[in-house]
């Protein structure tokens, strides 16, 4: 009978090490999360500017100063976009603490509070009729239409997380993309019924985030396979 430790010392794992090392190719080191965030933000702002150029900026935004709710909405959505993007780039690295996932929570709370504030101001302005539920499909389609392609972009940038923790990274990436899309929508679309429209922003953002979490890991793995086929 052979000694149990013998195959471990000179077994297939050691063969695998030799195989992996044989013909090793140099790799380009991944930029830091902060640099990636800068790149990601630049790309998103570029896409938003393109949307503004194609659809035109809101008339009331050009005519008057932005309303308080609009400004708060843009600031809180911007914080969500930046913090969730940064958290996604951090979490995509193996040695980072999983608590990075909590980073955007205060900004998300602020964003929800902005929506609440919108509802309160509507009630003050129009009475309870201001809270009448409605469906704002253009908002939904705009955020899905802009948010989903942007989400693909951040999934590509974090594709190395496919083998580590793909779901939280994809969800945070989706959240960041959707928040950027929501900022774009605020600049393009007039918020006539603030509360209702803001709630639809929230629904659309949640949809993009959920799609990111559900489909993201699979897309990341595909991108990862494509990479490994190229690099060997």
């Amino acid at each position: 009978m052979t000694e149990p430790s013998a195959p471990q010392r000179f077994g297939p794992t050691e063969d695998l090490v030799s195989r992996l090392a044989c013909g090793l190719r140099p790799v380009r080191r991944l930029p830091s999360p902060l640099l990636l965030l800068g790149f990601w933000t630049g790309c998103c702002l570029g896409v938003i500017l393109l949307a503004l150029w194609m659809l035109g900026m809101r008339h009331d935004l050009l005519r008057d100063a932005m309303g308080r709710v609009d400004l708060l909405h843009i600031l809180s959505a911007g914080s969500v976009a930046l913090l969730s993007g940064f958290a996604a780039f951090q979490l995509a690295l193996p040695d980072r603490d999983r608590r990075w996932a909590l980073l955007p929570l205060p900004a998300v709370a602020a964003w929800l509070a902005t929506m609440g504030l919108g509802c309160v101001s509507d009630v003050a302005r129009m009475g309870w009729a201001g809270l009448r539920p409605g469906v704002s499909l253009p908002c939904l389609f705009f955020i899905l239409g802009l948010g989903l392609p942007l989400a693909l972009g951040i999934l590509w940038l974090t594709r190395h997380a496919a083998l580590l923790r793909p779901a939280p990274v994809a969800a945070l990436g989706g959240l960041s993309a959707a928040a950027f899309a929501s900022i774009g929508l605020t600049l393009v679309h007039e918020l006539q019924a603030t509360a209702m429209v803001l709630v639809w922003h929230g629904i659309a953002v949640a949809a993009v985030t959920a799609m990111g979490a559900l489909l993201g890991p699979r897309l990341m793995r595909r991108a990862g396979h494509a990479d490994s086929s190229r690099s060997g």
Partner: peptide, 28 residues
């Protein structure tokens, strides 16, 4: 261990030499 080696090989570009190596490989 073999899974770890394969993963490590595919994500070797994510290691930042300014940070300690042990937590990186241990997490994988």
């Amino acid at each position: 261990v073999q899974d770890t080696l394969l993963t490590l090989h595919r994500v070797r570009h994510t290691y930042d030499p300014a940070r300690p190596f042990r937590p990186w490989i241990a997490a994988i």
